[in-house]
């Protein structure tokens, strides 16, 4: 058992997502940074898909009621056990009675805490992920609160030796300037050619309205191609007949303040989406903080797939390192 002494800003139980319900309006949820999530589980010796804690901006204080093996990855929110700093990206041993706390966030926005065996909450629609907007999954459908008690499950597949760590190229670095790769498309035909180019040229700023549903960005106004609005779309030039929004898609309501949708996305609506963040870089945008800068880089599908293969290869290599440790 793990006692929640302090919950942190928004600490939720997440896994690899609730896939297959999008057509009912149910987004996948799941860890925003799936790379860091997967590595945390590997370091804890967990099976794929085990649930972890996603820690946002400000870490919780957790008291372990049993001996446990844990690992913390993701954005740099420096962990401490009994007030002594401990490394991230490393298999750690904790003893019954130990208290895990976190220092101020230094880099990135979200850290992942895996415990060997996984966080045990009921599986709802094939997933343990929390979807807070509708109160589904995770711990009572919500972020952790003071006084909650978490159980550790039995999804460990391998004992990883404490001190095992990943290094170098396997640890992503997050700066305050994020280059996020997108594929331009969907309803990008609605933007003027000039605005399509400006979308890529502008250095966007992450606003305080940046959460698991989406990131609202500030920059300059973008312009839409004038047209007589088609029937059913609504009168604003940024309106389209309501359609499905891909995870990672970027819409520009009224031409101001683009919104990039993340794992708790609204699944559809009537604002023209103009580009989609590639899956590999969804891991990275979730590590961008309020006030940080984002530049969108246009790539082809082939380039996106290459990035995806590279990401898959890295994860396979980490897995391999764990096997031989």
């Amino acid at each position: 058992m793990i006692n929640v002494l302090k919950p942190g800003l928004q600490t939720t139980v997440q896994d690899d997502g609730r896939v297959g319900y999008y057509e009912t309006g149910m987004p996948p949820s799941g860890a925003v940074d799936q790379y860091s999530y997967a590595v945390a589980n590997m370091l804890a010796g967990n099976k794929k898909g085990a649930a972890v804690l996603e820690i946002t901006y400000m870490g919780p204080a957790l008291e372990f009621q049993e001996d446990a093996v844990i690992a913390i990855t993701g954005g740099v929110i420096p962990p401490q056990i009994n007030e002594a700093p401990v490394p991230m990206w490393e298999t750690l041993e904790v003893k019954k009675g130990d208290v895990l706390t976190f220092d101020f966030v230094k880099q990135g926005a979200r850290a992942y805490l895996a415990a060997a065996g996984g966080i045990d909450v009921p599986v709802i629609m094939d997933s343990r992920s929390t979807y807070t907007l509708c109160g589904i999954g995770g711990f009572d459908g919500r972020a952790l609160q003071e006084g909650d008690v978490l159980s550790i499950g039995n999804m460990q597949e391998k004992e990883v030796k404490p001190g095992t760590r990943v290094t170098g190229e396997y640890i992503p670095e997050f700066s305050a300037n994020h280059e996020i790769r997108v594929i331009i498309g969907l309803c990008s035909y609605r933007l003027t050619e000039e605005s399509k180019q400006r979308f890529l040229d502008i250095e966007w700023t992450v606003t305080p309205e940046a959460n698991r549903v989406g990131y609202r960005l500030k920059g300059e106004r973008l312009d839409f191609v004038p047209r007589e609005q088609p029937f059913g779309a609504g009168s604003n030039p940024s309106n389209v007949v309501d359609l499905g929004y891909p995870i990672g898609s970027i819409q520009v309501p009224d031409g101001i303040e683009p919104i990039a949708l993340l794992n708790d996305a609204v699944t559809g609506g009537g604002y023209a989406p103009v580009a989609t963040i590639i899956s590999t870089d969804l891991n990275r945008i979730g590590q961008a903080k309020t006030n940080e800068k984002i530049k969108f880089i246009s790539v082809t599908l082939e380039e996106a797939l290459e990035a995806r293969q590279q990401n898959n290869r890295k994860l396979a290599e980490v897995k391999q390192m764990m096997q031989s440790s």
Partner: peptide, 9 residues
């Protein structure tokens, strides 16, 4: 006295 979070003060 420091802010532990990014945001609006």
């Amino acid at each position: 006295i420091v802010s532990s979070l990014p945001g609006v003060f």
